[in-house]
Write a protein that binds this DNA or RNA. Structure first.
Lengths: 198, 198
DNA sequence: CTTTGAAAATAACAACCGTTATGATAACGA
DNA sequence: TCGTTATCATAACGGTTGTTATTTTCAAAG
């Protein structure tokens, strides 16, 4: 008889909680992101949090998963229909921290990445998402194998590309004055092309 | 008349505290590194901690500073007497997480790096140390300018090298199975040489 | 040996943590 | 309208946190 559950609304509410978690982490750091600060950031009470999540770790895991999930999904959609190095370059450049929205994403990414060494759950999450990313990069390299040197190691090249991507993104996040938006584009494009020629 | 202070011993004690802090962070993550767990890890009481440091943040800042300080110092000593790309390559390879000691260092580095976006103190610390690192890399590139293409942008090349270094090191830390020790050497050396040729 | 102050341990503090329990509200079916 | 139940706010719980105060230990100077 009573009021029926609304799965649609529940999912949207969980996303709101995740967004509030991101803002709380960005403002206070991950160790300052308590249930109370998250709730305050989202404008709801701690009761709402524990109603949609079993405990705090579930909240963090969900919020962290959404970030990397978004990156992988967007890159896949940009690259999957017609894999190419230029499409990959464009997709990764779009993900770099060149505006406030992406900077927030990288801040969250960094906070969760730092949890990986001491949390098996976060480590596995990282491992899975980056396996997907590497596969996407490899797909783009395979598609242009004819344009590459014959002895190129595609797996290794993919690791170098993602290493440079994360490294430059990290430095750009922490020193936006030294790594301006145009700088990031130039740095990454130049490296991608010198790799492709190798 | 009483017992005189011993600055030497005080400095050594602070280093012990820093080492205990590293182990506590490696074991419990940075949010699990409380004054009590740090003290337990080092075998002393919280009283010792607050005797040598004003508060917890000072402990973390000191412990974090020592890690990056060590890296910069070692790279400088390896590269400064006779700057070259091969010396730089060797120095950076030595710092990669290819053994447990270096893996611990990278874990601490990651924990502190993740604090930078929400802590101005840690952000400044990062900025200063990486400015020094970039200067060292630039020095090595300058020393071999004749062997490089004439239109090469040394500042940009330094940023790419350090980006690749941190990115590969980070991934190797989190996925040691995918990035084995020999893999790291091959990945980094290959990239260094393709950059030099550019 | 006594005295003195550095070094360190212990104890106490309020504030905050994650979790759980409890109450209030409101939307829906009957 | 009434009863039921999803949703959410509030309050309380034991435990832990960083900090401060107090006490103990102990090496060396007098």
């Amino acid at each position: 008889m009573g009021r029926p559950p609304d799965p649609k609304r529940a999912e949207a509410r969980r996303a709101e909680v995740a967004a509030a978690t991101w803002r709380a982490i960005a403002r206070h750091g991950i160790e300052g992101a308590s249930l109370r600060t998250i709730a305050q950031e989202g404008g709801f009470s701690t009761g709402t949090l524990v109603y949609y999540f079993r405990n705090k770790q579930d909240i963090l895991l969900f919020a962290g998963r959404m970030v990397l999930d978004g990156v992988v999904t967007r890159v896949r959609q940009a690259v999957s229909p017609r894999p190419s190095l230029s499409a990959l370059e464009q997709a990764l450049l779009t993900e770099m921290p060149r505006n406030e929205k992406k900077r927030l994403g990288w801040t969250i990414w960094l906070a969760f990445t730092a949890q990986a060494p001491s949390s098996e759950l976060f480590r596995q999450e990282h491992e899975q998402r980056y396996a997907e990313l590497r596969a996407l990069v490899c797909m783009c390299l395979e598609a242009e194998r004819t344009r590459l040197a014959s002895d190129v190691d595609i797996g290794a090249e993919a690791k170098r590309i993602l290493g440079l991507f994360d490294g430059l993104g990290l430095h750009a996040l922490l020193e936006p004055g030294v790594y301006t938006g145009p700088d990031q584009v130039e740095l990454f494009q130049h490296a991608m092309r010198s790799l492709a020629r190798a």
